[in-house]
Design a protein around this nucleic acid. Structure first.
Lengths: 204, 204
DNA sequence: ACAGGTGGTTATTGAATGATTACTTACGCA
DNA sequence: TGCGTAAGTAATCATTCAATAACCACCTGT
C-alpha cells in the first residue's frame, strides 16, 4: 500500500442542504409507514444513514420535521399538477389522476399526508393539514377550472387510492378476488404503478 | 344523617361485560383521535373512568384492544348497513350513505378504522384491516347488489368523508369559503350531522 | 500551518408508557 | 353471617424515545 493507506474510510461528507434532503426523503418514507407517533427519529436517522441526534438537531423537533415532510409532499403534488396543466388543458381529470398515481413512486409521500389528515385534532399538525388539503382543493377549482362536483369527485378518488395504498391492498391482488376486482376498478390505468409500489413495500 | 353516613362513596361496581363495553367506547374515541401509536392506555383508561392497569389486564395488550376496537367498529357498520337493506331495497346508494354518516354519532368509530387503514404494513393490524375493508366491499357487491363501479364510487365517498372528519374540516366551515363549498358539495344532505359532530370534537 | 466554521458522532438523560405484581374492597350466595 | 370470587386499584418496573451535551474531524481561507 502507499504511504497512509485508507483503512478508515474517508467517511462521505455532504453539504447540509443535501443531507437535509436525504433525511426528508427518509422521513417521508418512515412517517408514511408508521405515522407521526409510530415513527421514531431513530428509524428515520437509520433510513437516512445518519445518527439520531443529527436529525433532531437539523429540524429542531420531530414535530417540525413532520411538518416539513408534509409541506414538501404538498409542494410535490402541486408542482406535478401544474406541470400537467402547463402541458395541455385537455382531459384534465384523468391526466391529473395519472400524475397523482405517479407520485406513489416517491415512497411514503401520499401516505405521510394521509397520516396528517387523520390527525386534524392536533393543535399544530391539524391546521397545517387542513390548509394543505384546501390548497389542493383551491388548485382544482381555480387553476384546473374544475366544478365543485368534479373537484370533489377527484378528491374522492384520491382518498380511496391513498387508503388502498395504506392498506397494502395490493398484497391481496392474487389471493382475493374481491381485492383484485376492487383494484382493477379503482385504477383504470396505472395499475402497474401500484403493484410495483406494492412489491417495494412488501420487501421493506 | 343515618347510622354510617356515606362519606366514602360506595364506588359503583359493574359487571365486567358492561365495563368492557365502556372501555371499548372510550378506546374507540381515543384511538380515533390519536391513532394506534398516539393513543395511550392511560388516556383510554381515564376516558373510561378506570385505572390504566385495568384496561390492559382486561384486553391483554394495547394491540389486542385496538384490534377489538376496529372489529367492533366494522360490526357496527355492517349491522347498520344490513338494517338499511332490510328496510327497503330502493335508492340503496344514498340510503347506505346516510347510514354511514349517521355512524359519526359513535365518536371515533370511523376514525379508528381510518387509522387502521393507513397501518396496513403492520404485521397484525394490517391483515385485519384489509380483511375488514374487503368485508365491506363484499357486502356492497353481494348483499347490496352494487356493480363494481358503484361499490367503488361508494367507497370513494366514504374515504373522503373519513378524511374530512379526520381533518376536522368542519372547523373551517365558517372561516374558509373553500372548506364551506367542499363540505356542502361532499355531503348532499346530512351536513348537520357532521357539523354537530365537529362541535363535539372541538370541545374535546 | 493553523484557526474556525461546518458536518457530523457518542454518551447521556429525563419523561412517558405498556405491562406486571400484589394488594383491597364490594357483592352474591350457602 | 361469613366466605369466596369478581371487580378493581396502587405501586412499580423495564423500555423506549426525543432531546441535550459534549466532543471530534474534515475542509477552507489566509
Amino acid at each position: 500500500m502507499s504511504k497512509h493507506d485508507e483503512s478508515h474510510h474517508p467517511i462521505p461528507r455532504m453539504k447540509s442542504e443535501d443531507r437535509r434532503e436525504l433525511i426528508l426523503q427518509a422521513a417521508t418514507d418512515v412517517f408514511g409507514q408508521y405515522g407521526y407517533y409510530g415513527a421514531t427519529t431513530d428509524q428515520i436517522a437509520r433510513a437516512a444513514g445518519v445518527s439520531q441526534p443529527y436529525v433532531v438537531r437539523m429540524f429542531g423537533t420531530k414535530e417540525k420535521l413532520f411538518i416539513e415532510v408534509i409541506e414538501r409532499a404538498l409542494q410535490f403534488i402541486l408542482v406535478s399538477f401544474r406541470a400537467v396543466i402547463a402541458e395541455s388543458r385537455a382531459d384534465l381529470q384523468s391526466r391529473l389522476g395519472s400524475a397523482y398515481v405517479e407520485l406513489l413512486r416517491q415512497r411514503g409521500l401520499l401516505l405521510s399526508l394521509m397520516h396528517s389528515f387523520v390527525l386534524g385534532g392536533d393543535p399544530v399538525i391539524g391546521p397545517r393539514a387542513r390548509e394543505g388539503f384546501l390548497e389542493v382543493y383551491q388548485f382544482l377549482r381555480d387553476e384546473a377550472g374544475l366544478a365543485p362536483a368534479e373537484a370533489q369527485s377527484f378528491l374522492e378518488g384520491g382518498m380511496l387510492l391513498n387508503t388502498l395504498v395504506g392498506l397494502r391492498m395490493s398484497e391481496e391482488f392474487d389471493s382475493s378476488t374481491a381485492a383484485n376486482e376492487l383494484l382493477c376498478t379503482a385504477l383504470p390505468q396505472k395499475l402497474d404503478v401500484l403493484l410495483e409500489f406494492g412489491k417495494q413495500q412488501a420487501s421493506a
